[in-house]
Design a protein around this nucleic acid. Structure first.
Lengths: 228, 228
DNA sequence: ATGGATCCAGTGATGGATCCAT
DNA sequence: ATGGATCCATCACTGGATCCAT
């Protein structure tokens, strides 16, 4: 049961205007406008907020390996925040192609492409608050500044180097200052084909790159200090 | 709404016994035993008969690229027949991996593996007869005799040779005496990655190998002449 | 009669993320 | 606080085949 929502925005400006129109509204309100039912909590609907905001803004890439707004090259990320506006969760960036071995340049990597241009949409994310009552915050169209890109690149080269050598099993979420590697699967019995350090085919848990909250917190802090 | 059905049979003998117990029963009767609803016709339920018989006999490979009865290495094929016991449709055997170029030996090919050992289950298939009233016939556990295997191999080498050279687009269903190549897709706009004769990546319609009715008719004729 | 077109169910991969035990 | 585990939607593909215009 749901209504189609708008078509894709024609420009970054139009996208930002739509996001501004969303700011301050509750998720229940936005969902009602799209005829989308609101789940009681997110335990069984973990991507619900992101998918709702995609539809509200007219994202058109529907689960493809392309930017959410294809014409604009912009990626959409909702960001759950606490009462003080600090991120309460890490942010998933991209899955890791485990069958590719060897060095992959940062430029052109899936992580670099995903983070080239992002519309961050903060959303109240405190567990205690009913999902429908949570409000959308002021969105922020962002690209990494040179320092941020250098920091991401540093983490990425460390982690992807380990993966490229076939040492994926040695990676824990402790590695990486801003970017980390964690499982990305339906459950812990899921296995995916990979190549180990001896060059043998093996089965391992699918993993993804995530941004730590300290990184996304800095993006928000930067923005709200510069544009209060 | 449906019941589980039996576990996998432990031997070919047990499989054949189960099939014998099915012979003469109507599809409606079999479906009722498994708590499976009967569709009004097969236009919107094309694989329904095959899936029903799979469950009734305890097939366990559930859509995987393995024999339907994994422990036994036996493939199950239902065969729609007319009042005189002649097949009314071709029989799908296997999809064609279009990204593989070059010669593939018959031995070890998907077609050869699928047809190595088959339990054929004739089922009344006349359109006019209501689905629930159609009866299951006497099953037949079959392997190709040397002449049949040679004939299949001949067709397969001709067709797979054309495919291996990248000339898939030139193949029509007219080619092949017993084995033919036809589309295998949800509809005619579906495209799959393939390699053309120039070695270029291209998009073409997915196709599969099918047995002509003259081949399956001969299998039935042979059997019922030898074991009347 | 049959070559080309089509239809459903189920699995696996990916994109959307958040949960929760420690 | 957070590392490891988990959950839904959707798409692509495969296996089960039959439909239907000519």
């Amino acid at each position: 049961m749901s209504a189609p929502g708008p078509g894709p925005p024609a420009s970054e400006q139009e996208l930002v205007e739509r996001a501004e129109a969303l700011a301050g509204r509750s998720l229940g309100d936005v969902a009602a406008g799209l005829r989308v039912p609101v789940p009681p909590d997110l335990r069984r609907a973990k991507g619900w907020v992101g998918q709702l905001v995609e539809r509200a803004l007219g994202a058109d890439a529907a689960s493809r390996d392309e930017p959410d707004f294809r014409g604009l090259g912009v990626e959409l990320k909702t960001l759950p925040v606490d009462g003080a506006g600090r991120p309460v969760e890490t942010t998933f960036v991209a899955t890791i192609p485990l069958h590719l071995v060897g060095d992959v340049p940062w430029e052109g990597s899936r992580v670099q492409r995903k983070l080239r241009r992002v519309l961050w949409v903060p959303v109240e994310g405190e567990r205690a608050r009913p999902v429908g009552d949570r409000r959308v915050g002021a969105a922020l169209l962002w690209s990494p500044d040179p320092d941020q890109e250098a920091a991401l690149r540093f983490d990425w080269e460390e982690l992807s180097g380990i993966i490229g050598r076939g040492d994926i099993e040695s990676i824990t979420a402790h590695l990486g200052r801003f970017l980390q590697v964690r499982p990305k699967a339906a459950h812990s019995r899921v296995r995916r084909t990979a190549i180990d350090a001896e060059g043998e085919v093996t089965r391992t848990m699918p993993r993804g790159f995530y941004l730590r909250t300290c990184f996304t917190a800095e993006i928000l802090r930067q923005h709200y200090r510069l544009a209060p």
